[in-house]
Simulated scan of single mutants.
Amino acid sequence: MVNFADVDRRNYPMVDVTTGYGQWVETYEQTVEDIMDLALLDALTVPTWHAVQRAVDLGCGTGRTGAWLRSRGVPAIDGVDLTPEMLAVARAKGVHDRLVTGDIRDTGLAAGSYDLLVSSLVDEHLPDLLPLYREAARLAAPGALYVQVSFHPQFILATGMPTHFTSAGGEHIAISTHVHLISENITAGLQAGWELVEMREGLVDDSWVALKPRWEKHRNVPVSAAFVWRRRG
């Protein structure tokens, strides 16, 4: 296990998740690039999105992922997030059937209710991954898929960069960040009863460099990863 403080090269002031995303909400969708997460969802081959009956969007934020799922034919989506300000934006989109303010590790939603579970760019905020994987397993119907998109640990280690945003006053603010190695994700998923059926990694490539020219020095470093898990039984 790697302590983020040991690799932090930015030394931005750091706030908790609810505080950080509550402040970031106004510019969040203008600063998070689709190539980070939605492009990886597009690249997956195991999920048949239009065949899903009911999905849960864990850490749904402003509803970016929920909107993407709706566009792929998912008919019913619930969402859970800690931050009221982010949920307000998601609610305005109207893509979720139900939105719940809560912790993705203990949602309070009914067990066995979903044949698709999705979480995107949330696990770096958790000190321990196992509670998330266990809660996802509790919510999953037999044979359900759990798709998780992560901020790649190799990129965090290479750059010392936390999840961060620029405040209204122009200050860089970090949101509580934890480094989880790929092996930690796989170990937690297996321990919670999931079977890994697909994995993809997104590298810094021409598309990234076009968006962020200063990232040329990080070319070919993986920046995000997508895991597809199937519920056993």
Rank of each mutant, 00 (worst) to 15 (best):
Y28T: 04
I173D: 10
P153K: 03
D37Q: 11
A55D: 10
R134N: 02
K93P: 05
Q53W: 11
C60L: 03
M199R: 12
L139Y: 07
V74A: 09
E184L: 03
V223F: 13
N185R: 01
Y114I: 13
L40P: 02
N3D: 15
V100W: 04
R64P: 03
G20D: 09
L40D: 08
L87V: 07
W194V: 03
L99C: 06
T31E: 14
D6F: 08
Y146T: 00
D8L: 04
D123K: 02
L157C: 01
T65P: 05
E195T: 14
T83Q: 11
T27I: 15
T65Q: 10
W215I: 03
E171D: 15
R230M: 06
R91L: 14
K217P: 00
P47D: 11
Y146H: 14
Q148N: 15
W194G: 03
E135I: 05
M161E: 14
A88T: 14
L109S: 12
E135V: 04
G202N: 04
D128T: 11
L211M: 12
H152C: 03
V209N: 02
W194F: 12
R91V: 06
W24V: 01
T19N: 07
L126V: 06
L139I: 08
Y21A: 09
A137M: 12
G202D: 01
A174G: 15
P162M: 09
A43L: 11
P13T: 08
H164C: 12
H96P: 00
A158I: 00
H164V: 01
A192Y: 06
R134W: 04
R10A: 12
Y114Q: 13
G79S: 10
T27D: 15
A192M: 08
P213C: 13
V17N: 01
Q53F: 11
T159K: 13
H172W: 09
L117Y: 09
G193T: 01
G79V: 10
V80T: 12
A158S: 06
A140E: 10
R134V: 13
G169C: 08
R200S: 08
T159C: 05
L190N: 07
L132R: 09
G94K: 05
V95S: 07
I77W: 10
V95F: 14
L58T: 04
L211N: 09
A43F: 08
V17I: 10
E198H: 06
Q154P: 00
W24S: 01
Q148A: 15
A92W: 07
R70F: 02
H125Y: 14
A210P: 00
T163Y: 13
S113Y: 06
D81G: 07
A67K: 11
A76F: 10
A136T: 03
P13E: 09
L99R: 04
G79F: 10
S183E: 15
S119E: 11
S71Y: 05
E135M: 06
R64T: 12
W208C: 05
R54W: 01
M1C: 08
R138W: 04
R200T: 06
M86L: 15
L117I: 15
V46S: 09
D78Y: 09
F151R: 00
A43W: 05
I173R: 05
V118L: 13
T27W: 09
S71W: 04
T19Y: 07
A168N: 03
E195H: 13
R64A: 10
V179E: 01
W229S: 03
L58N: 05
E184Y: 04
A140K: 04
T27Y: 08
V7N: 01
